[in-house]
């Protein structure tokens, strides 16, 4: 039984999930704290997919405004706040490049080049980032062809048809590579 004069231990800093809960109640300070904590991961992902720095900034803004709006709908029982935000970020990043594409077709050659660069980046993942490491490891357990297709689709934001064009293989092959690779990734990551 706790004696009245004993103070509880120093409260631990709020988790991201706590912050989102407070954001849902309109707490701007909590929002700012959340922004500071997760914006580098969000911006990193968006820049990878969108590539253009100015547009990446815009998309990042959109994402955080959406986080503010939708915070009440986050359910911590189902996953981490960062994952939730990153899912929103990927969707908006892909939205953005597909929109750009409608007006000016993206240069696929350029795509390949950037893809190779992005591949190099992936190798540079900060060691300390446990998830990053796990993801990298899991990705490396796929065949080269599977990795390539998944990286182009996720990090490049390309549709499966575009991936097929880039790799000069039939789209059916791409579908299979992506699916087989994702199944392996799922099993490696133990997410399902």
């Amino acid at each position: 039984m706790r004696l009245p004069w004993l103070r509880p231990a120093e409260p631990s800093p709020p988790t991201h999930e706590d912050l989102v809960r407070r954001v849902a109640l309109g707490d701007e300070a909590a929002f700012e704290e959340l922004y500071d904590a997760v914006s580098p991961q969000v911006f990193g992902l968006i820049r990878r997919v969108v590539r253009d720095p100015a547009q990446s900034e815009e998309v990042t803004q959109e994402v955080f405004v959406e986080v503010w709006q939708q915070a009440a709908r986050f359910d911590a029982d189902r996953g981490r706040a960062v994952s939730w935000i990153l899912v929103i970020a990927h969707r908006r990043a892909v939205d953005r490049i597909r929109a750009a594409q409608a007006s000016a077709d993206r240069d696929l050659r350029q795509g390949i080049k950037e893809f190779q660069e992005s591949y190099d980046d992936v190798q540079d993942i900060v060691e300390a980032k446990i998830e990053g490491e796990r993801v990298l490891k899991a990705l490396e357990s796929l065949t080269q062809a599977q990795q390539e297709a998944i990286r182009l689709a996720y990090y490049g934001g390309y549709t499966q048809q575009e991936v097929a064009n880039l790799l000069k293989v039939p789209v059916g092959t791409v579908k299979t590579r992506i699916r087989d690779g994702m199944i392996r990734l799922r099993d490696k990551l133990g997410v399902a």
Binding site: P40, Q41, F43, G44, L45, R48, S83, L86, V87, A89, H90, D121, V122, D124, I125, V126, K129, E131, G132, R134, V135, L136, A138, L139, I150, Y154, Y155, L185, L189, V191
Partner: peptide, 8 residues
Amino acid sequence: MLAYGVEP
């Protein structure tokens, strides 16, 4: 999970 494969 792939989102974590990008450097912040």
